[in-house]
Amino acid sequence: VRQEELAAARAALHDLMTGKRVATVQKDGRRVEFTATSVSDLKKYIAELEVQTGM
């Protein structure tokens, strides 16, 4: 499950970095929206997932 969450989070980051205004991911069973202003929060979430998956 964590691998899927990590892939979704990375895709969301890619979307935001390429101009999409809002990206949505499932985080702990709930839907979370990230915007360009919350990229740093999304990067932290990705880092947490990488630690949890041993990457």
Results as ranks from 00 to 15, higher is better:
Ala12Ile: 04
Gly29Glu: 04
Val22Ile: 10
Gln26Gly: 04
Ala12Lys: 02
Ala11Ser: 12
Arg31Val: 15
Arg21Pro: 13
Val22Lys: 09
Lys43Ala: 11
Ala8Cys: 14
Tyr45Leu: 06
Asp41Phe: 06
Gly19Thr: 04
Lys44Trp: 04
Leu16Pro: 00
Asp28Phe: 02
Thr53Gln: 11
Gly54Met: 11
Arg31Tyr: 14
Glu5Cys: 11
Thr35Tyr: 12
Val22Cys: 13
Ala8Pro: 02
Glu4Lys: 14
Phe34Val: 03
Glu50Val: 06
Thr18Trp: 07
Lys27Gln: 04
Val22Glu: 06
Glu4Ala: 15
Thr37Met: 05
Glu5Pro: 03
Ala12Pro: 01
Ala8Ser: 14
Met55Ile: 07
Ser40Arg: 10
Leu16Trp: 01
Arg31Asn: 15
Ser40Asp: 14
Arg21Cys: 14
Glu5Asp: 08
Met17Tyr: 08
Leu13Ser: 00
Thr18Asn: 10
Val32Glu: 05
Gly19Pro: 01
Leu13Cys: 05
Val25Ser: 02
Gly29Ser: 03
Glu5Lys: 08
Leu6Val: 05
Ala7Met: 13
Glu5Arg: 09
Gln26Ala: 06
Arg30Ala: 11
Val22Met: 09
Leu16Glu: 00
Leu16Ala: 00
Glu48Thr: 06
Ala12His: 01
Arg21Ser: 15
Ala47Trp: 12
Ala47His: 07
Ser40Gln: 06
Gly29Asn: 06
Arg10Gly: 03
Lys27Asn: 04
Ala12Met: 03
Arg30Asp: 10
Gly54Arg: 04
Gln52Arg: 10
Glu33Val: 13
Glu4Pro: 05
His14Tyr: 14
Leu49Asn: 01
Tyr45Ala: 02
Ala36Thr: 08
Leu13Pro: 00
Glu5Gly: 04
Glu33Leu: 07
Ala23Lys: 03
Lys43Val: 14
Lys20Asn: 07
Val1Glu: 13
Met17His: 05
Val39Thr: 06
Glu50Ala: 07
Ala23Gly: 07
Val39Ala: 06
Gly29Cys: 06
Glu5Trp: 06
Arg30His: 14
Val25Ala: 04
Lys20Ser: 10
Lys43Trp: 11
Leu42Val: 01
Leu42Arg: 00
Val39Trp: 05
Asp15Val: 05
Ala47Tyr: 09
Asp41Tyr: 04
Gly29Arg: 02
Gln26Lys: 12
Ala11Leu: 13
Arg21Gln: 15
Val1Trp: 04
Ala11Thr: 09
Phe34Asp: 01
Gln3Gly: 09
Leu6Cys: 03
Thr53Lys: 07
Arg21Phe: 14
Thr35Asp: 06
Val1Ala: 10
Leu49Asp: 00
Ser40Tyr: 07
Ala8Tyr: 09
Gln26Phe: 08
Leu13Ile: 03
Asp28Ser: 04
His14Phe: 12
Gln26Ile: 15
Ala47Met: 10
Leu6Met: 04
Asp28Thr: 02
Arg31Thr: 10
Ala7Phe: 12
Ala11Lys: 14
Arg2Glu: 09
Leu49Gln: 02
Ser40Thr: 12
Arg31Leu: 15
Val25His: 01
Ala7Ile: 14
Gln26Thr: 14
Asp28Val: 02
Ala23Asp: 03
Leu6Glu: 02
Glu50Trp: 07
Val1Met: 13
Thr53Phe: 09
Ala7Asn: 13
Val32Asn: 03
Lys44Phe: 08
Lys20Cys: 09
Gly54Ile: 12
Val1Arg: 14
Ala12Asp: 01
Asp15Cys: 10
Ala9Ile: 04
Asp41Gln: 12
Ala9His: 04
Val1Pro: 06
Leu13Tyr: 10
Glu4Leu: 07
Asp28His: 04
Ile46Thr: 00
Gln26Cys: 15
Ala23Cys: 07
Leu42Thr: 00
Arg31Ile: 15
Gly54Phe: 10
Gly54Asn: 07
Ser38Pro: 01
Arg21Lys: 15
Val22Gln: 05
Glu48Asn: 08
Ala9Lys: 01
Val25Lys: 01
Thr53Asn: 14
Arg21Glu: 14
Gly54Pro: 05
Val32Cys: 06
Thr18Ser: 14
Phe34Ile: 04
Gly19Trp: 02
Gln3Met: 14
Glu5Thr: 07
Leu49His: 01
Glu33Asp: 08
Gln52Met: 09
Met17Glu: 12
Asp28Gly: 09
Val1Tyr: 13
Ala7Asp: 12
Ser38Ile: 04
Val39Met: 15
Ala7Lys: 14
Glu48Ala: 09
Glu33Asn: 05
Ser40Trp: 09
Arg30Ile: 15
Glu48Gln: 13
Ala9Tyr: 10
Lys20Arg: 03
Ala23Leu: 02
Thr53Ala: 07
Val39Gln: 05
Lys27Trp: 05
Leu13Glu: 01
Tyr45Gly: 00
Val51Leu: 14
His14Arg: 10
Gln3Leu: 10
Met55Thr: 13
Gln26Arg: 06
Arg10Glu: 05
